[in-house]
Design a binder for these strands. Structure first.
Lengths: 211, 211
DNA sequence: CAGCATCCGCTTTGATACTG
DNA sequence: CAGTATCAAAGCGGATGCTG
């Protein structure tokens, strides 16, 4: 393993998880739970399969992930994060916080997975009315619908459609994410092609940072 | 610039500061302030000079650093962090936090700069008696002496010797850092070659996590 | 000397094909 | 499904040379 050879905690961390793709693998496991090899690869368009195999082996050696034979009837190996790997959540969050402003400059052509609305939802949304009734917003962008749920003061995101959403956000990722993050106003976004159903105020309940 | 091509804040951040050496350059500027090209290179043993020039240009393009002609009599260009670059402090801190446990496994041969005692000092020390008299500890390891100062409830680290330190820590980096981080007891460390002067209890005042 | 640019040998990466 | 094998291209590290 290539190393910086410095007695410094930052350099040591980068020795271990600073290689290309490593943190994105961790992101996949943090966001989606234990995954199969193929699932990870599908989440990382452009990764070479041999390189993915290498990275998984390295991450296993340093104790970030662990492979486990899934019980029947799955009969495949699942890649899990170890507790030590879970601790990378704060690292991923810090990097994602810092990188969020860069999304605005994206011109398109970037791959997008609907799973990723979890990030802006987790970073920018908060239930400002925790005592209010449960709230569900269906988000349709990318490959599959996602649902943002607010209940008991916390905001959660999960895949799948929902029965009677209080609002529906549909359109290209940039607009959807822009609206969720409060970077684009709802009126601007709808004028630029966003489809919105439901009471516009329900979104406002979740956007304390939108001003 | 090579890019992951993903519409994801983590991927975007890694596109920009995920290349080899980039975050270590930021570390140098975060820890030591504006620096000359040569100073940065000296802080990064092993970096190829053309690669350093490349990285500095890239970091400048993405708005992380800024080069500025220093006023006379210095007559050289200084590399500064921009406000956007300063925001990487939380990223560096998260990574350093995560990487700190890896220092224990280091076998030696790693480069060490005395500047780096700032990290364990900042991470593991806290003034448990903010109303007490000011406290200074001189640390002698690596190339130059450092001083850890506690006053008004905060702990600061700066280079240079001091006049009448309450304690002196001298010896190899692993022992010095181990003691500061509370991972090695003072008695163990002195038995293994650490030189300690002064009242042993002064160190205890700064180590709330040492137990 | 400070701040690079050029060249060269080596390693890593990315794309594709193939296998148990 | 979960990789290994192969190979061209890009990136990296080290040495050296150039310019103010």
């Amino acid at each position: 393993m290539r190393t910086y050879g410095q007695y410094c905690p930052l350099a040591k961390a980068l020795d271990v998880i600073g290689d290309r793709w490593s943190l994105l693998i961790v992101r996949e496991l943090l966001g989606r739970g234990p995954l199969r090899y193929t699932d990870i690869r599908n989440g990382l368009p452009g990764v070479a399969t041999n390189l993915l195999a290498d990275r998984l082996r390295e991450l296993e050696e340093v104790g970030v992930i662990r492979r486990e034979a899934a019980p029947p009837p799955i009969a495949t190996t699942l890649f899990h994060l170890t507790p030590r790997g879970e601790e990378l959540r704060s690292v991923v969050r810090a990097l994602a916080d810092w990188g969020a402003p860069l999304l605005g400059e994206s011109v398109g052509g970037d791959v997008f997975r609907s799973d990723w609305v979890r990030y802006p939802a987790a970073l920018y949304l908060k239930d400002t009315t925790p005592d209010g009734p449960p709230l569900t917003i269906e988000v349709r962008t990318g490959d599959e619908p996602m649902v943002i749920e607010a209940a008991d003061g916390t905001v959660r995101t999960r895949p799948g459609p929902t029965q009677h959403p209080d609002a529906v956000l549909a359109g290209p990722p940039k607009l959807v994410i822009g609206v969720i993050a409060g970077k684009v106003s709802l009126s601007d976004a709808t004028a630029r092609g966003l489809h919105y159903e439901g009471d516009p105020t329900v979104l406002g309940r979740l956007q304390p940072h939108a001003l």
